[in-house]
Nucleic acid binder design. Sequence first.
DNA 1: TAGATTGTTAATCGATTAACAATC
DNA 2: TAGATTGTTAATCGATTAACAATC
Lengths: 210, 210
Amino acid sequence: MKTLKIPEATIMRLSVYSRYLSEIDRKGIITISSGDIAEGVGVSPAQVRKDLAYFGEFGIRGVGYNVKDLHRHILKILGLSEGWNLALIGIGNLGLALSTYRGFKDRGFNITCIFDNNPEKVGMVINGIEVLHTDKIEEIIPQRKTQIAAITVPADAAQDVADKLVKAGIKAILNFAPVVLNVPPEIELRNVDLAVNLEVLTFNLGGRMA
Amino acid sequence: MKTLKIPEATIMRLSVYSRYLSEIDRKGIITISSGDIAEGVGVSPAQVRKDLAYFGEFGIRGVGYNVKDLHRHILKILGLSEGWNLALIGIGNLGLALSTYRGFKDRGFNITCIFDNNPEKVGMVINGIEVLHTDKIEEIIPQRKTQIAAITVPADAAQDVADKLVKAGIKAILNFAPVVLNVPPEIELRNVDLAVNLEVLTFNLGGRMA
DNA sequence: TAGATTGTTAATCGATTAACAATC
DNA sequence: TAGATTGTTAATCGATTAACAATC
């Protein structure tokens, strides 16, 4: 297998393509062209073909792609052909939102445990999962074979939580706290910062209005 | 003013720098170098200086940047020196999370109205704001001088909501529904897709483990 | 003056787009 | 065969990094 560097932007688009393909598949459509996909998700046809070309040849020249087939291939590429176990740390409103987010379950993410350090929340049961104290992270994460954690605690508690998760042997962290986390390089880390996204909007508005 | 194209990545980093600067400022630190900022947020010093250079000269050679001063400049650049009014559409768990998200209020975002199409939710009061039916969008958005909307409704309702918002004269949309929205080009649109972010993680894990 | 750090230019690196031969 | 659409290469575009003169 060639170890060509894949742009992260390509991976994000593949995720979008796959969701579009599942929609198309539900409509009973059998075959689709790169141009159709491009139009459906708002990129160029060349981009669609280039993104796919990193991973193989999935289409038929002159014809297009088989929808089910391509969908399956992309899910495989994204590592979604088997499920993943997910831990939630911090069960405020955002944690609660993630715990019920359909998009996760639909894509094969299975929430195995929920942690919080607020004694009033510990012991609550959310979707059949008991909320545990964050002190239990190191014990429970390996027990429940959980590879990914989403952090939704306040900014000043996030690094401490991250440290516990690393000790517990977590493989990847999705961080919603607006703070830069320090983790060893072998841990996959992504930050989702809601304010950053709003501020790109205000910058763009400012430019047009000023 | 030169109309040099500014990379979007630069804007996102400026948002991160500004949050870091406010933290540094709280600690009472007066002066900071590009190297310190770089280390604090995890980028290179050259990147920090380049990002700032798009907008002017804010530092003193041989010395560094005045923390308060630079912070103020960046907020101005991001359009955050005055506040913005924000509408929330869809008051499920994610909408609820946004309605109480400290990061928004802290950065000058003021939630003016909340909409939902569920009759059981219409009339509820959340943080002093009455939930209105989505049919009222066109009437209320202009009344309350609201320029930005966050969409947190299910995927199949999102385009309809977006159409209403456009008719209501909204300027920018932050879309959390996992669907590609069609809006006129003059509307600023950003998508925050939680599943996409998780799937970049699973792709990276897959690559290492396979 | 010597040391430090900026602002900026040039070099590098990476991603997107355009074009087209291959082929169904 | 003629028309369509892929896979891939080359050209373009854009962003990051390295280096250093300017200057405090």
